[in-house]
């Protein structure tokens, strides 16, 4: 896995977060308590002298891991986050595509509408999935959350679109350039707090975190940040291989994203 220059990545992400903050009236960020969105919040603190100046949304379906809830509450307090918990209902018979597609997206739509957010920071990365690699830094979504991937706006140099459909919003992607291994190297270098589920217990660890229903751990003995970084240097397995919704059918990620999934 390619290791990039962390200073350059940090500078570009902070630039994008600040551009977004100054261009939109009412911006929020999604926080899953995973490594990517937690790193993004750390960068936002660096961008604004230690304080995240926008609300942070957790889409909570009630079935996240206990460690995840504990991590959320502790860090929200420590970093003085303006945390919004948006509850989504979970139906036991629904999983994978329909779960993330229906349940989480419905909850997100509801909170976006209630609070009138016009932009949402989402910590996706280009190396996660071929479809995510097609994203812009600023990516418009229509009123019904659709991603018109066939007609994305031009995005030249460091200048991002601020075009808004009536009632739509802009997804802001400050972490697009980062690779999985860069996130871990950055976490180590800056001592960014991290969800304990990523570290090996009984020979298994979570490499990508979703809820308890659709995430499975991978075989791993990596118990420290150094061991995780070492493991990633030689891995030949995709990061999201433990995520059910990615594997159900070909092009599923494309459909999920077109319908508003993160």
């Amino acid at each position: 896995m390619i290791e990039q220059n962390l200073n350059e990545l940090e500078k570009r992400s902070i630039y994008i977060i600040r551009e977004a903050y100054s261009r939109f009236k009412n911006i929020a960020a999604l926080w899953s308590m995973g490594k990517d969105s937690t790193t993004m919040l750390y960068l936002a603190r660096k961008a604004f002298m230690g304080k995240v100046p926008f609300p942070v949304i957790h889409i909570d379906n009630g079935i996240d891991f206990p460690e995840t809830y504990q991590f959320r509450d502790e860090l929200a307090k420590k970093w003085k986050l303006n945390l919004i918990v948006a509850k989504s209902k979970i139906k036991p018979e629904i999983s994978g595509f329909s779960c993330c597609g229906a349940n989480k997206t419905i909850a997100l739509k509801k909170v976006m509408k209630e609070k009138g957010f016009d932009a949402l920071i989402v910590s996706i990365r280009r190396d996660e999935h071929g479809i995510r690699a097609k994203e812009r830094y600023f990516s418009p979504r229509s009123k019904d959350f659709k991603w018109n991937y066939k007609d994305q706006p031009a995005e030249l140099w460091d200048d991002y679109t601020s075009k808004l459909d009536n009632g739509g919003h802009i997804r802001v992607h400050p972490m697009l350039d980062w690779n999985e291994i860069d996130i871990w190297r950055y976490i180590k270098k800056n001592k960014v707090p991290v969800n304990p589920l990523y570290f090996s217990r009984n020979g298994y660890r979570y490499r990508s975190l979703g809820c308890t229903h659709c995430t499975v751990p991978i075989k791993s003995n990596a118990k420290t940040l150094d061991q995780i970084i070492k493991e990633l240097k030689v891995t030949n397995v995709e990061e999201r291989s433990g995520r059910q919704q990615d594997k159900e059918k070909e092009y599923i990620m494309q459909k999920l994203r077109a319908f508003g999934y993160m």
Partner: peptide, 24 residues
């Protein structure tokens, strides 16, 4: 196809939108 991951791109054999790939 390692790059053209949209369904429409693979079916029609043409790139629709820009994407990136890293090599070492």
């Amino acid at each position: 196809f390692l790059l053209d991951s949209f369904y429409e791109e693979q079916r029609n054999g043409m790139t629709l939108d820009t994407t990136r790939a890293e090599i070492h």
